[in-house]
Design a protein around this nucleic acid. Structure first.
Lengths: 199, 199
DNA sequence: GGACGGTCCAACCACTTAGTTGGACACGTT
DNA sequence: AACGTGTCCAACTAAGTGGTTGGACCGTCC
């Protein structure tokens, strides 16, 4: 019983997995077909070339999950915590972004960039609001602040080998939990509005 | 005038370039040969297979530059600044590390790991010393602190596409300069020992 | 000067990979 | 039940890839 929609979806999901795992150059069309329990020909029929499939996957997947990646909490420390948990839940997301950064820097689709930009704009507005409310030090540039937060959270998942060196062996879930708390504390210290000048 | 040492060096340098640019799967032996103005056969003679060449490059290059990557300044904020400048000077370094993290996670050579670990151990000791000197809050776990610092500094060079989204367009050198100052300020706020308890 | 040890190089081989094709199969329609 | 439309699939093609090989070349030492 051929069901085109189901086949299409299976291919898409297999492609996400494969590209996240191996990147553009390392991904194999045959493997995608096998994982999707479909045929290569279906891939080319539904998605065109390997490169077109990749673009589509990056566009749709990152766009979709980018939405989720920005939980609706206002507090920055809480947000960082949620983001970290998101990365555990969806490791493919960061991996795909890293591949994208490495393989496609420069030649990125302007439209896609613009669309994804919206996700960050929302977060920026939230930060600015909290600066007006004196919850966050208004002297801090919101963009730089967010970049720093992303950097702190992401690092744990970005360079696992360096983490091992730093920790002198495998890192555990407990370590990650400690890192989350630590990150939260760092953020609180960073955003704390300066104490009123001492007399 | 055949000069094996020179050929060897040219191949090595070309390999660094190629692997940093395209990663393991994307790297092409032919391109390395062309860049090195050498022949494929020389590569196999001097370095063995493509994979062996990669291992060698990762090992030696990251080991060599890892040394430089850890400037001899004690102050953490200054260190972060130097690290950021290092990444501008040697973009291949982070790229190679990112490829390594993506492509080789798990199956890393234990020896190489152990050797590189020393670089971080030195830095950890320095942090601990400053904690004893009450320059850095002694409550902070040095490993977590360093991870956070690395994360902040690296982010600028790790996900350029997200940076563009956050900044709404290309980022300039001025932005990077601002980010450096911002990072420094963040670190100072994080490490600041807590004020003596208010009466 | 001639044999030798090593470097260099073009052409070659075996295999993998992206992409194609032709036909079998399943379903809805009449 | 025959037809037509569109999905599915195995086998194929063409090109690119890592890796090899045979011999040309060059300086050196006897």
């Amino acid at each position: 019983m051929p069901d085109p929609e189901s086949t299409k979806r299976r291919i898409y999901e297999a492609a996400v997995e494969e590209f996240a795992e191996h990147g553009s150059a390392g991904a194999r069309v045959d493997r995608i077909a096998a994982k999707a329990r479909a045929n290569k020909e279906s891939i080319y029929r539904y998605f065109g070339t390997k490169d077109e499939l990749l673009r589509r996957v990056i566009d749709e997947y990152i766009d979709d999950l980018g939405e989720q990646m920005l939980p609706k909490t206002a507090d920055l420390a809480e947000y960082a915590d949620a983001l970290s948990r998101f990365h555990v839940e969806h490791p493919e997301f960061l991996r795909m972004s890293l591949w994208e950064g490495l393989e496609y820097d420069g030649e990125l689709d302007a439209d896609s960039l613009e669309r994804r930009r919206q996700h960050y704009a929302d977060k920026l507005v939230a930060v600015e609001q909290q600066q007006r409310d004196a919850i966050i030090d208004p002297d801090l540039d919101p963009r730089l602040l967010l970049a720093v937060v992303f950097g702190m959270v992401n690092y744990w998942f970005t360079l696992p080998q360096r983490l091992k060196m730093l920790f002198g062996g495998e890192v555990s879930d407990t370590d990650l939990e400690a890192y989350r708390e630590f990150t939260g504390e760092c953020i609180r210290r960073i955003v704390a509005p300066p104490a009123p000048p001492a007399a």
